[in-house]
Design a protein around this nucleic acid. Sequence first.
DNA 1: CCTGGTCTGTGGTAATGACCAGTTAGATTA
DNA 2: TAATCTAACTGGTCATTACCACAGACCAGG
Lengths: 246, 246
Amino acid sequence: MPDVIDPYDFTPRYYQLASILRERIAGGEYQPNQPIPSERQLEELYGVSRTTIRQAIELLMRQGYLYREHGRGTFVSPQKLQKGISELTSFSEDMKQRGLEPGQQILAIDMRQPPEKIRQRLELEASAQEVLYLERLRLGDNIPMGLQTSYTVLPPGQTITPAEVETQGSIYRILQEKFHLIPTEADETLEVALATPREASLLGIAPGSPLLLSERTTYSQYRRVIEFVKIVYRGDRYRYFAKLTR
Amino acid sequence: MPDVIDPYDFTPRYYQLASILRERIAGGEYQPNQPIPSERQLEELYGVSRTTIRQAIELLMRQGYLYREHGRGTFVSPQKLQKGISELTSFSEDMKQRGLEPGQQILAIDMRQPPEKIRQRLELEASAQEVLYLERLRLGDNIPMGLQTSYTVLPPGQTITPAEVETQGSIYRILQEKFHLIPTEADETLEVALATPREASLLGIAPGSPLLLSERTTYSQYRRVIEFVKIVYRGDRYRYFAKLTR
DNA sequence: CCTGGTCTGTGGTAATGACCAGTTAGATTA
DNA sequence: TAATCTAACTGGTCATTACCACAGACCAGG
């Protein structure tokens, strides 16, 4: 990434500028809680308009790199760089962020009519189409971390084969590459549950052991439900992170 | 809220416009998954520039009311209005959102030197100042929901009296009104824990019962740590909500 | 010594005009 | 008929100019 704006680059200028500033921050050139150059100065420095400058800065603010104070300036956030700020991630990405090698063991995969409760959460009509059912044991560094049950809504007439899931690993990637469906938003709930005998034996713990139960509904860029996922995590191995803002 | 932009209003025009559009959506005038007028049309309709239109729309997108598709239009999100989208809230606000009457029973309140582990999370120097220690039983509709332990950093020399906490209820409000400290960001972790005998008796459950353990570090508008809060919730009574985005 | 102005630099809001980049539907062409 | 092109939308990016609102420093007057 060069240090100047390239007008012949395809990517927007405000995006290029954001990358440059992000590097300056990462490189320690701009220190935490210290101001970066003012908008008017940046205008001079990089030969772009204030409109563009502000777009770049807003992007970096949303990403948590900068904060502003009216009348004072724009400052570098003192955030220790921490992965896993509550963004929408798949289990695979989640594990990688924690520095663990993601793995999985598929227990079931087929197309089926979802039960009534699930059908409602998928916002499907009663004349229900079949959805992809998938039950997987999720591993981190080859150790069972959780048991995941998912119902995925595919475009009518489409299917995903077991082979595809095996090789790709991430359902999200398949959805994106094959159907151009991009998960952009999700609602998640977390609560405590106790392991059933089946869950316990699969996870290698005693029945009745405490679990962290996550239920997630994922929406596409068109605000349609893509999937409903239920995961029970081993209570002793998993911790959930969230970054909240006001 | 009028249906026209008032140039003599103190509030920014893009904010006024956002309110108007939000009402049109709430009133069903703009239907879910249907397009709202294009940016050029809104320019005509409300007599403001496209710059302002776009700011209003971006605001409503961040709030989840609208989504856009390049080349097609701007559409109303089909989201059922749901409270508790992962925003930074206090326990009191949280309870209200769930339709429960928040209550509390203060078990301890004093100024003290925090233990080493806590001091690090508060990002305080070793020459540690005293912080406000508070232990409260949190109630929802007069039923124990959780046990909260908090360490709050006050400006040097300042204190908060038990009376203030009793009457105000919310520490956040006191911080804001008395010290102009606004909580703007927080990091939270959730995991499973088992009730100690003391926790169990306070919460009215059996020792060893599963709990949802939340640890939260809250930051001010100046990106300084305001407080560190640990809450154990009754596993059978509490569920955590989060809204994730990509 | 404090109080209240004023000046200057900061970000915040807004209008205008221009062009780029997807999407769609109707007209045109093979 | 079917494929293609084109024109007219949509939102996305960018430059320029102007003025407002807040913070801080400095200075004059009490």
